[in-house]
Amino acid sequence: MSAQSDNWIDIAALDAVPQRGARLIKTAHGCVAVFRTGIDEVYALDNACPHKNGPLADGIVHGKAVTCPLHNWVISLETGAAQGADTGQVATYPAKVVDGRIQIDASLLTHRGVA
C-alpha cells in the first residue's frame, strides 16, 4: 500500500453495506463495488468481472472472495485476481474503516486502480 496517499474520502457508514455483501459507488470512470466481509473488512473493486463484465457487487461474498453472479468466477477481494483455473484481474482501490465509516482513497477519482 505504499502508493496510497493520505487523501481519504468518506463514503458511508459501514452498516450501510450488509455483512458478506456489497454496494456500488458511481464514479466518472464507472461503478466501483465496495465489499464488506463476514469479519467487517472492506474492499473496493471495479464492478466488472474480467470474464464478461458481470456485476461483482451482486455476487455471493465468502471469506475474502466474491463469486460473480453470471458464470461463477471467483475473484479475490484482496488482489482482484480470478481464482482457480480462471485467469484475469479486476482493478482494486484502497479502502478502510475508521470509526464505523467506510473511507476510500481519493485516487479513485482521478485514475484507474492500483492493480
Binding site: 474520502i9 450501510a16 454496494r23 456500488l24 459507488i25 458511481k26 464514479t27 466518472a28 477519482l109 482521478t110
Partner: peptide, 12 residues
C-alpha cells in the same frame, strides 16, 4: 441505490 455518487466530485 448506489452507496455514493462521486461522478460530480472534482478530480484533483
Amino acid at each position: 441505490r448506489p452507496l455514493a455518487d462521486l461522478t460530480l466530485e472534482a478530480a484533483e
